[in-house]
């Protein structure tokens, strides 16, 4: 029986507009959702369980508002939902150390996560916790085959690498060809009643401090031309003005 963990994170819906208030991003009117790549991690975790037997525990870090994302994956068929209760900024060292502690405490064999979260886009958590645990890892996995050892595909400069790795391991998941399941009414009803296992954590002091969050510098207005014949003008500008071609 494989003890499977999947890391999920609540982030602003990727279609939402991000606004700044003062010198911080203002998320008060933004719709929150599960980070897109985490959906592939959850699907891989569930398929792993269905293929070899086991249990799947979803773990998130955040305040009570993050329970929504846990209920959402519970409705998909995750067995246990766990929230590491911390609602402030953590640097990668802090975040990875509390997650690694939880992975050890839970006795997990494998951790799935998204290749990066849609807010920071960093992609550090998967490989970072693998290093802390002394585990193997593959990042940006586009296909996972489950057996005693995993077979994982991921893109490289030279083509798609297909590697095998033994558990324990961390796999960070890209989109690939996997289709994610949708929740049904029964799952949603069950998830409503499910208890979130809330755990207190105490991350080490951060060495990274957020100084400010700002809008990207506005681009000066460009040149807009009407009609297909202007494509010739644009080609010329790409040579004379932009020095690109």
């Amino acid at each position: 029986m494989v003890n499977i963990a999947v890391l999920v994170k609540q982030v602003p819906d990727t279609n939402s507009k991000i606004q700044i208030s003062g010198d911080r991003v203002d998320l008060s009117s933004v719709k929150m959702d599960i980070s897109p790549y985490d959906e592939f991690a959850v699907e891989n975790a569930l398929q792993h369980k269905e293929s070899t037997g086991g249990t799947v525990s979803a773990i998130t870090v955040g305040g009570a508002a993050a329970d929504k994302v846990l209920k959402g994956v519970k409705a998909l068929g995750v067995d246990n939902i766990i929230r590491l209760d911390y609602d402030g900024f953590m640097d990668s060292n802090g975040l990875q150390s509390i997650i690694a502690e939880e992975i050890i405490a839970g006795g997990y064999d494998i951790v799935y996560c998204g290749k990066s979260a849609a807010d920071t886009g960093a992609g550090s958590t998967g490989p970072g916790i693998a290093e802390r645990l002394g585990w193997a890892s593959v990042s940006n996995a586009t296909e996972v085959k489950f057996a005693d050892a995993l077979t994982v595909s991921y893109p490289t400069e030279g083509g798609d690498a297909i590697v095998s790795l033994n558990l324990p391991a961390v796999v960070s998941c890209d989109k690939g060809s996997i289709k994610v399941r949708k929740s049904n009414v029964k799952g949603i009803m069950m998830a409503k009643k499910a208890q979130v296992d809330v755990k207190a954590v105490s991350p080490p002091a951060a060495s990274v401090t957020v100084v400010s969050q700002v809008m990207p510098p506005a681009k000066p207005a460009g040149k807009k031309f009407e009609g297909a014949s202007s494509a010739q003008t644009v080609a010329q500008l790409l040579r004379d003005e932009a020095n690109i071609i």
Partner: peptide, 16 residues
């Protein structure tokens, strides 16, 4: 660093 895929920019300082 870009955050929210470049919809905003985050400026950080690092100690050590």
């Amino acid at each position: 660093t870009p955050i929210y895929s470049g919809k905003a920019i985050q400026n950080v300082s690092v100690n050590g």
